[in-house]
């Protein structure tokens, strides 16, 4: 979560609301913030830290591990209409690359801005060419995009 906090400015720039959620109580969240997160990142974790008591929310989102009694690392990008656009779920020992969430958010925001007229190819980052999707592009992606550029 400290890695997410570290990118707080970027999420703010993209007007993204971050929510963290674990099975810990709000009291534990408070002490974690005060005792550890605020020492890892200036200002600590600036977004709401949700308590998923009993894993009921996690179960609906497919991230609750019933044997361990915890929510595993699951990350969901939800658009302004409340539609899930991206899901990433990892087992506990490997952390996320938060920059990838930022990149995906930028890509989904771009697609939304163009109302779906443009698509973001693999590895797309802001400033790189997008694909103008339509019948004319069929079989001709190679003329406008290469995977190693």
């Amino acid at each position: 979560m400290s890695a997410v906090a570290d990118k707080a400015k970027e999420f703010a720039k993209l007007d993204v609301q971050v929510l963290a959620c674990s099975t810990d109580s709000r009291f534990v969240h408070k002490i974690w913030q005060e005792q550890e997160l605020s020492k890892m990142v200036e200002g600590g974790f600036p977004f709401p830290m949700l308590s998923d008591a009993g894993g009921r929310i996690g179960a609906v989102y497919g991230v609750f591990d019933e044997e361990a009694g915890v929510d595993v690392r699951g990350r969901f990008i939800i658009d302004p209409d409340g539609i899930v656009q991206a899901i990433e779920i990892l087992t506990p020992p490997v952390g996320r690359k938060v920059a990838e969430s930022v990149r995906q958010l930028q890509a989904f925001q771009h697609v939304r801005k163009t109302k779906g007229a443009e698509a973001c190819p693999a590895g797309w980052e802001p400033g790189k060419p997008t694909l103008k999707v339509g019948p004319d592009l069929v079989g001709k992606v190679w003329t406008v995009w290469k995977p190693n550029e």
Binding site: M1, V4, F11, L14, D15, V16, Q17, V18, L19, A20, C21, S22, S25, R26, F27, H29, K30, Q33, P46, F47, P48, M49, L50, S51, D52, A53, G58, Y61, V63, A68, V70, D71, V72, R73, G74, R75, F76, I77, I78, D79, P80, D81, G82, P92, R96, S101, L105, F108, Q109
Partner: peptide, 27 residues
């Protein structure tokens, strides 16, 4: 139930309609 900005409050996902949301579960 949530902890945020030094206080406690209940947070509802649908209250963020109109914004992009990054929802992160962690162990």
């Amino acid at each position: 139930a949530a902890f945020h900005a030094g206080g406690f409050k209940n947070v509802r996902l649908s209250s963020f309609r109109g914004k992009w949301v990054l929802l992160c579960f962690y162990p």
